[in-house]
Design a protein around this nucleic acid. Structure first.
Lengths: 236, 236
DNA sequence: CGGACAGTTTGCGATAGCGCAAAACGGGTC
DNA sequence: GACCCGTTTTGCGCTATCGCAAACTGTCCG
């Protein structure tokens, strides 16, 4: 098993307050693995044998209903953890994780968690913060779904993606991994058709430039305006 | 300050794995307070000076948008904690808490938290579980809002309330605190008008009996069916 | 180079649920 | 016992969004 360079991960929030030597010890318990694009990392409902830290690539966490509909819970960016089922006291993964790009992850066995947090309390504290932040994001999402219309929700979703995984280029900000209209629909609680119509509209106004699983925000500022505008105060 | 009887709270999940003597020490750091019906316990955005454990009554946690719309994040039942901002690393409360019934709470100063979890690690672990559970509930709610129609969401919301705070009586299960159509609307992402229409419909079918801020589920089982039915497989 | 296919666009009805408005209904108060 | 106020009910028109269907397009593959 290849040794993981501590300098690559030392700055991550997860390891804030952990001493270099300790970090070394923590990393020794992990192995790394590569998941090619479009492969599943774990499935919803499967026993949570491991938890993960994403090093490279992008991972989509999605939840499926009994009737087969899906929603995207979140996109994981490099440096973030996922599959933390055990930390929150669940024996099975509550969602499915899939690499949307060729991805490299660190993997710890779930069984190592209790020992790790006992030896390194900041790990527990940092994880708590992470989970807390996700909880607040969920509440924000619920708030948006309750009070905003689809166009605003899509605007917010794209801005968040751009913020989290945007690649700056001359033309604007490009979302740095393949994402389809369907994916955006599943993030915002709508249908791919509606998303397509909205993006078409924006494209003709020069707000975005988009193609097959590719979106560039050309005028982020104007999209912010869209996201925040009160529906009934709009143009004629 | 009146001393809190440890036997009243020892069985709570929050204190699982805490020794009686330790529990005593933990409780010594808390004070208790009474909030009459309809009084605010803390406001969204205010500095998180304290965290709370509900002993009696019911508390509604709600989030308000910049434009004044509200959603109900959750109803707190006796034995549950709320206002855990500091645990999740936030200096301000992300929501407003209001007593919906005369309520009694235990209050710890936020500043006590770091010391408490250091001395009693199970507190931290238990809190992590709680937060994790809430995160999953949020995801479930998002899933429902994305894939189900209003009637099903209302059914789910009422079943959850009945489960959490239902009082069994001969006629059925009564939700044990005052709750308006508006409240239910804010839990399900719809309007009070739509909730009213739905409940009227159910009432005429004998599924519920309801009045001013009062709801009794007369036929929980049939409501479960409603909650789960696939929209397009319904009656003619 | 010619499919074949997944993803995207677009048109066109259908409709669930909203928004407004007005009326009816408790339930507590003086 | 009359009154007042917050809650609930209900009617009615409107529209944002869905759902289906069909055409289109960029990409990968042989």
């Amino acid at each position: 098993m290849a040794k993981v360079d501590t300098s690559l991960v030392a700055h991550l929030p997860l390891f804030a307050g952990v001493k270099p030597d300790d970090l070394d010890e923590i990393l020794r318990e992990a192995r790394s693995a590569r998941y090619p694009k479009s492969t599943a990392i774990f499935e919803q409902g499967a026993d949570a044998k491991s938890f993960f830290l994403l090093l490279h690539g992008h991972v989509r966490a999605a939840k499926t209903t009994p009737t087969g509909e899906q929603i995207v819970v979140r996109y994981v960016a490099p440096g973030e953890t996922f599959g933390l089922a055990m930390a929150i006291g669940t024996a099975q993964y509550p969602a499915t994780a899939m690499a949307v790009d060729d991805s490299v992850v660190l993997i710890w066995p779930t069984s190592a968690w209790p020992r790790l947090i006992e030896r390194f309390p900041s790990l527990a504290a940092n994880t708590m913060q992470t989970v807390g932040k996700r909880l607040q994001e969920s509440h924000t999402r619920i708030l948006e779904m309750s009070t905003q219309q689809v166009e605003q929700r899509v605007a917010h979703a794209l801005l968040r993606l751009a913020n989290q995984s945007g690649k700056k280029l001359e033309k604007g900000i490009e979302i740095d991994f393949p994402i389809s209209r369907q994916d955006i629909a599943q993030m915002t609680g709508t249908t791919l058709h509606t998303v397509s119509r909205i993006l078409s509209g924006w494209e003709s106004q020069g707000l975005v430039e988009s193609g097959r699983q590719r979106i560039i925000l050309r005028e982020p500022h104007r999209i912010v305006v869209l996201a925040e505008r009160n529906p009934d105060s709009g143009a004629a």
